[in-house]
């Protein structure tokens, strides 16, 4: 599949152990919810780090689609188009 036709998920360093060290994952999905459901099947431990048992994004996880927080879009129903990038924002406190 051509990269331009896919959604890219940027995985922060602390969660890469859940996906064999990959810093990004490629998939095809029409919405954030659909992308996460694919993750649930392909990388269940990564999915559980992002979503709680009800399927909601965990309170401490920030998901961005391109430059926008999903909270400011349509949450899990945010539509995706090929080329979109989902970023799982890592929490960084080092100084």
């Amino acid at each position: 599949m051509a990269r331009a036709m896919t959604i890219t998920i940027h995985v922060p360093a602390p969660l890469r152990a859940c996906c064999d060290g990959a810093s990004e994952l490629l998939l095809s999905a029409p919405s954030v919810r659909a992308a996460l459901l694919q993750l649930e099947r392909s990388h269940p431990s990564l999915y559980r780090s992002i979503c709680d048992e009800t399927g909601a994004v965990r309170r401490h996880v920030n998901l961005f689609v391109n430059t926008s927080h999903v909270r400011d879009r349509e949450g899990l129903d945010t539509a995706l188009v090929p080329g979109d990038v989902i970023t799982i924002l890592p929490a960084v406190s080092g100084g």
Binding site: P14, R58, R59, H60, N62, L89, P90, A91, V92, S93, G94, G95
Partner: peptide
């Protein structure tokens, strides 16, 4: 508004490491 105090992955430079010029 961005970060919650439920954060689990609290990593420090002392424990995780950091490339010096980035600071």
């Amino acid at each position: 508004c961005l970060y919650s105090n439920e954060h689990i992955a609290a990593e420090s430079c002392a424990e995780t490491g950091v490339v010096p010029p980035l600071l």
